[in-house]
């Protein structure tokens, strides 16, 4: 009998702790790029206030990782990623309910410590050998964007580290371990008491596509959320966080 109970308990654990009885069709699962975490949290709060009983389950992380989870079968209703490229595997796998829409744009900037003590003025300074510089690795969207910007500006940067995500670059700037890092405007905004952002010329932006997923069980709620994000109030949240709206 005890073995049976154990086996049942194990079965419950394996079948996923999220399956609590209260979870009905009122739950909508949103996966979002890490750089949009705060906006999506605010959006979720707004949505839950206006739809009593509804619950938004939000998971944020690196775009490629989220896309990989969707392709591997993670059930979710709405997906918002930080670049069209990272969404491609999801589209290739046919997980979308319809064509993705661009909900925001993010500009890349050079993050330096508050007050710009090393007197950087633009991308060309990233080639100065005496400066410690952090970029994202080319494999992740922020790195691809940085590479594009450097290429357009004809600058060969001398990075000291190629980080696995944009927040790691920001952290290294905040801790003073590097003098400059290429991040998104939204990251600079999120840490504006510790870092300053310098514009990149010519400007480089990345599109944030959003798409409803077939694996989700709340397509209507997902559409409502998407509409809310694209409404005036949603766009105000985006702008406040440093995004540009299309």
């Amino acid at each position: 009998m005890r073995q049976l109970a154990l086996a049942l308990a194990l079965g419950l654990v394996l079948s996923g702790c999220a399956d609590d009885p209260a979870a009905g069709s009122d739950e909508v699962v949103v996966l979002g790029a890490a750089s949009m975490a705060e906006v999506l949290e605010d959006l979720a709060d707004l949505y839950e206030q206006e739809h009593p009983g509804a619950r938004v389950v939000l998971s944020t992380g690196g775009s490629s990782g989220l896309a990989r989870q969707v392709v591997n079968g993670l059930p979710a209703d709405l997906l918002v990623l930080a670049s069209p490229g990272s969404l491609q595997p999801v589209l290739d796998a046919g997980e979308q309910r319809e064509e993705p829409v661009v909900v925001a744009r993010n500009r890349i900037e050079i993050a330096v410590r508050e007050g710009n003590p090393k007197r950087l003025s633009g991308l060309a300074d990233l080639a100065r050998p005496e400066l410690a510089v952090a970029l994202c690795a080319s494999q992740v969207p922020c790195g691809a964007a940085a590479d594009r910007a450097l290429q357009q500006a004809g600058v060969t940067a001398s990075p000291d580290t190629l980080e696995q995500d944009v927040r790691a670059v920001l952290t290294k700037v905040r801790l003073g371990e590097v003098d400059a890092g290429v991040v998104y405007a939204t990251d600079v905004r999120a840490a504006d008491d510790e870092v300053d952002g310098l514009p990149v010329e010519p400007p480089v932006t990345t599109d944030y596509p959003a798409v409803r997923l077939r694996g989700g069980s709340a397509p209507d709620a997902a559409q409502d959320l998407l509409d809310l994000l694209r409404s005036e109030r949603g766009q105000a949240l985006l702008v406040e966080a440093g995004f540009e709206v299309p």
Binding site: G62, S64, G65, R68, A134, A137, Q139, V140, P159, D160, T161, L162, E163, Q164, A168, K172
Partner: peptide, 25 residues
């Protein structure tokens, strides 16, 4: 990756290379 960062040939060890490769390939 936190203390040493990641740069090919200098600080990018195998586990970090695996992690980055997983992003694209």
């Amino acid at each position: 990756i936190t203390f040493a960062g990641s740069f090919p040939g200098r600080t990018q060890t195998m586990p970090i290379a695996v992690y980055l490769a997983l992003e694209t390939d």
